[in-house]
């Protein structure tokens, strides 16, 4: 076993796990964050995506020990992340990506959607007003994509990303 100190959604904690434990298991079982979903476990689907220092990372193939010292965010931490970015003005509300996901009613079963929202936050941080082609590229071809959804919510995701982009530009 190995002790490692992780900062997740703004809280820092030391956990004692096997040194080769992937981040997804630590977030789910030690930090009890159910917003992190286990999908393929092979970096092929995106269900497990989280933010590490603001960029999307596949937690199923990332050793927890590798991200000690980084800032890790799951969807549970997106509201605070947004509040911080806006210097607290949006505290209590949801991240605009989350709000857009609700407004567009994106999830069907929802299993893939944590990863989809993480990918959207990553994309919008780099490309504040993405075109449809840029969104398609980000969710299909740009590493670590693809992000897969068996319920076929892709058109709704495109609408929601654009809605979130408008909200974040205000």
């Amino acid at each position: 076993m190995a002790e490692m100190t992780l900062t997740v959604n703004g809280a820092t904690r030391t956990v004692d796990v096997a040194p080769d434990t992937p981040l997804v298991y630590v977030l789910r079982n030690q930090f009890m964050l159910g917003g992190v979903r286990l999908g393929c476990g092979m970096s092929q689907c995106g269900a497990c995506a989280v933010l590490v220092d603001g960029r999307e990372v596949r937690s199923c193939v990332t050793l927890a020990s590798r991200v000690a010292g980084s800032k890790i965010h799951t969807i549970e931490g997106l509201p605070a992340l947004w509040a911080e970015a806006r210097e607290g003005t949006a505290a209590g509300g949801l991240h605009p990506v989350q709000q857009a996901w609700i407004d567009e009613q994106v999830p069907q079963c929802g299993y893939c959607q944590s990863g989809m929202m993480i990918a959207a936050v990553d994309l919008l941080a780099r490309v504040p007003s993405p075109s449809v082609a840029q969104i398609r590229e980000a969710f299909t071809d740009a590493p670590p994509s693809p992000h897969l959804c068996r319920c076929g919510t892709y058109p709704a995701i495109i609408d929601a990303v654009q809605r979130a982009a408008r909200a974040m530009a205000l």
């Binding site: 979903r37 799951t74 949801l94 994106v106 999830p107 959607q113």
Partner: peptide, 19 residues
């Protein structure tokens, strides 16, 4: 009418069977 389970999924509040 909004689907009641949508907002909880988006916030990360759903208790999935795997949880």
């Amino acid at each position: 009418f909004p689907v009641p389970t949508v907002a909880e999924r988006v916030r990360g509040d759903t208790e999935w069977v795997g949880d």
